[in-house]
């Protein structure tokens, strides 16, 4: 029923399907956080989920990554029904979640944090290679390899969280508010790296409050409002739409 209200703008660029979320509902006790959210992410696509506080962005992400169990609806990932799977079953299937507020392990070194990203992998040489890769992607992490993650700056912690998520070798990276509490230049640097990551074939489902940045980086975007998708369209098209500009870009 909520699908009927989605206003779709423009043509979507075609990507082979990877994730499809179909009408998921999430309840926290008596409160309904998601009232039937549907969205898809293609292989190699960057999809942004924008919306105000409490719109259900984080809940959607948590349901997709298996940290929350949806009370209704279906989630398919890579051709499998993953609706009732938990995070530890989804990580080996190629889904990585960099949770909100970064969530680095504060009393572990940068290196140990990264090693935990490869928690479920057993290919030692592959892990080594990917560690090197993440150091090329984020040179600052290499400098701080031995440093406790809790002593890093906010931006560095965000980079660590992304690098750590990438070490599980995901096909789909779920990113929750990477710009939270960061200076504009740092945020831009992170989004630049995100494009590099995407260029290697990793799909990204991005939750952001900073609609401008997110829609610029994304192939496709969804606008969430009080637990429902109200608008969808290619990033550029959403950026140009009068409603989005008024509601989320302060114009």
């Amino acid at each position: 029923m909520s699908d009927a209200q989605v206003k779709t703008l423009g043509e979507r660029q075609a990507f082979p399907p990877l994730l499809s979320v179909d009408g998921i509902k999430v309840h926290y006790g008596a409160i309904q956080a998601l009232k039937g959210v549907s969205l898809t992410v293609g292989k190699g696509e960057v999809v942004a989920l924008i919306g105000a506080n409490g719109a259900g962005k984080t809940s959607t992400l948590r349901a997709v990554s298996g940290m929350l169990k949806p009370s209704a609806g279906r989630i398919q990932f890579n051709g499998h029904d993953t609706t009732n799977m938990k995070a530890h079953q989804l990580v080996p299937r190629g889904m990585a979640h960099a949770p909100e507020g970064r969530g680095v392990f504060p009393n572990m070194s940068v290196q140990e944090n990264l090693e935990l990203g490869a928690y479920l992998r057993t290919d030692t040489s592959g892990i080594q290679q990917d560690l090197e890769k993440s150091f090329t992607l984020f040179p600052v992490l290499k400098e701080r390899r031995k440093q406790m993650a809790g002593t890093l700056s906010g931006g560095e912690q965000q980079m660590l969280a992304i690098a750590r998520a990438l070490l599980s070798k995901p096909q789909l990276l779920l990113l929750d508010e990477p710009s939270l509490g960061l200076a504009p230049q740092v945020t831009e640097a992170i989004f630049r790296t995100l494009r590099e990551v995407n260029a290697t074939g990793v799909s990204v489902l991005l939750v952001e409050q900073n609609a401008h940045l997110a829609l610029n980086a994304a192939h496709y975007g969804y606008v969430l409002e009080t637990g429902e998708v109200v608008m969808a369209g290619p990033g550029k098209a959403l950026l140009e739409s009068a409603e989005v500009r008024r509601a989320y870009l302060g114009e």
Binding site: S65, H88, A98, F105, P106, M108, L116, Y119
Partner: peptide, 23 residues
């Protein structure tokens, strides 16, 4: 022990890394 340590440090992050936290 590593898994337990990760849970101690940050349970949500440990879960996101694929640690079966409840188990």
């Amino acid at each position: 022990g590593r898994s337990l340590w990760a849970i101690r440090e940050d349970e949500v992050a440990a879960e996101a890394m694929g640690v079966d936290t409840t188990g």
